[in-house]
Amino acid sequence: MALNKREIELLADKITVNLIKDGNIKLNKDISLLKTIAKEVLEEDAQKEREIDLKTKELLKEYSSEIEKEGADTSKLFIMAKKKVAKQEGFLL
């Protein structure tokens, strides 16, 4: 499941602090710029994952009668299908 807005904020803060603390980045400007960049990247990633979730749900909906007939575990099937859709989209989960 994609990160929510609160999780994105927290993760962007942590990434920013760790990059600076570990000496990987030296800032000439305000730390907020780095945090904004991290947040934007995480938001784009979360949006792509939501799109993959939607494509996966649509795919499973197409086969819903077969899935129901076989009594398949829909949670496990969703995870497996999502991995496949993500791979086809070139997205690393």
Rank of each mutant, 00 (worst) to 15 (best):
S65M: 13
R6V: 15
K35F: 01
Q88H: 09
M1I: 15
N18Q: 12
Q88A: 11
K82Q: 06
K48V: 11
E43M: 06
G90F: 13
G90R: 05
M80K: 15
Q47M: 13
T74C: 08
L11P: 00
L19M: 10
K87C: 03
I31M: 09
L33P: 13
E89A: 02
D53T: 04
L77C: 13
I67L: 07
K76Q: 14
D30M: 03
I52S: 02
E44M: 13
K82D: 05
K84V: 14
L19W: 09
K26V: 10
E9H: 14
L27G: 00
D73P: 05
D53Q: 13
I20H: 00
E66S: 09
L10D: 02
F78P: 05
F78C: 07
N4G: 10
D73V: 03
T36Q: 12
E43F: 05
N24V: 12
K76G: 12
T74Q: 11
R50K: 01
V17P: 00
L92Y: 07
S65A: 12
K69F: 05
L27D: 04
L93Y: 04
I15N: 00
V85G: 06
F91H: 10
E51F: 00
L34I: 01
D53C: 14
D53M: 04
T56L: 07
L42K: 03
L54S: 15
V41L: 06
K76C: 10
M1W: 07
I31W: 03
K39T: 10
E68W: 08
T56H: 04
E68A: 06
T36M: 12
F91E: 07
L34G: 06
I52H: 07
K57Q: 15
V41M: 08
M80P: 02
S64R: 14
L34F: 00
I37S: 08
Y63M: 13
E66P: 04
K84S: 14
